[in-house]
Design a protein around this nucleic acid. Structure first.
Lengths: 205, 205
DNA sequence: GTCTATATAGCGATAGAC
DNA sequence: GTCTATCGCTATATAGAC
């Protein structure tokens, strides 16, 4: 069951008890079966809240999903902000972020799968793509600051972000697809080694 | 309209004219609206084939999608095999593959989006994840051969594959999400520079 | 605010003529 | 093999009691 640390990512304090139960139940269903395979009665069963109550709090299934995604992105953003604040240099922050991403993948593979594969626009056409939102913005700004520090080479910002976080995201995807022989977090050192190599490469070529 | 080069990727020669029309129509719908948002009448309109005929050739909507994905993966695999056969060394093959992936992204963003975001297991629970299949297998074997050649450092196979192809896949994703300032293929040199850096890094650390 | 019971619309799939 | 017409079901959403 993914609700334990998912619950920590959805900062639900401002919501009523019923709304929290509905959102957590829906998240559980969406993670396991996807949005389209989830029927309202599934959410009723998972949340312990009746159909009528669900529709009292949320206009329809789509608006419920919208509220959930918003909360999830905000939660991710806050978790990342807290993590970043605990470290000094951009490279240390990148390192910590990568370790956290890998650890989260081991702890909550289905949640991570939901976020990674999240073709949210298929069911939420008005949602901007995930990579334009705060969490990915944070990655980009970390990379840019590391580049300014001289810790990363003076390459294009998009390419550099892709080179720093792309490999980790691929490993996470392999993990949730079940094709990774060891737990995801055991790859953190090797992944960080590839980033080190970006910066220490001999300046020729 | 994505059917032009999509058609080249779906090697449809062995199929009847009707089956080709159905698969192309369905692909067009799935690419644009996703599997769940596509109704049978949509496929009827897109293919010009009647409901009855569709159900004569395919057991149901799910089996139609299955046939389509199979054709698509086979087509990708064959296109990649041809491309690889035209080059000598593993590194040249990797280079050519990356250029091809980026060019395809510019030419067929919606098709690439469909493949990349492909949470196909949501509608095809029995389909193995894309990254276990031939196209990704090919990437892995190229990387392993380049490593044996000494062109890539002796890092873990999964990490190395992620480091070589992960950044390109991230750029492709950014492109199809519309957050890339320039066409995807213009990033190929910078992306290949990051791979060069993997191998030429000073051996210390 | 929460619940149960139900309406209704729209979808996948089929029947059967040609 | 292809088509039109239609069935039956199921899922969303609502009505209305408490």
């Amino acid at each position: 069951m993914s609700a334990q640390s998912a619950e920590q990512l959805l900062h639900l304090e401002t919501l009523s008890e019923t709304e929290r139960k509905i959102l957590l139940g829906a998240l559980h269903c969406f993670i396991q079966q996807g949005y389209f395979n989830t029927r309202i009665p599934d959410i009723v069963a998972a949340s312990g809240v009746s159909t009528g109550s669900i529709y009292h709090h949320f206009k329809d299934k789509q608006h419920l999903a919208e509220a959930l995604i918003t909360q999830l992105i905000n939660g991710l953003d806050q978790a990342m902000a807290k993590l970043i604040s605990q470290h000094e240099t951009p490279m240390e922050q990148i390192h910590a972020l990568i370790e956290w991403m890998l650890t989260l993948t081991d702890a909550e593979p289905e949640l991570v799968s939901f976020i990674l594969y999240a073709r949210h626009r298929e069911f939420l056409p008005h949602q901007p793509p995930l990579c334009t939102q705060q969490p990915f913005e944070k990655m980009r700004s970390l990379v840019v600051r590391a580049r300014e520090n001289g810790d990363l080479p003076p390459l294009d910002e998009m390419v550099l972000t892709a080179a720093v976080f792309g490999p980790t995201l691929r490993i996470m995807q392999a993990a949730v697809d079940g094709v990774l022989p060891r737990p995801a977090h055991t790859y953190s050192a090797a992944l960080f080694a590839t980033i080190e190599r970006l910066s220490t490469a001999s300046a020729e070529v």
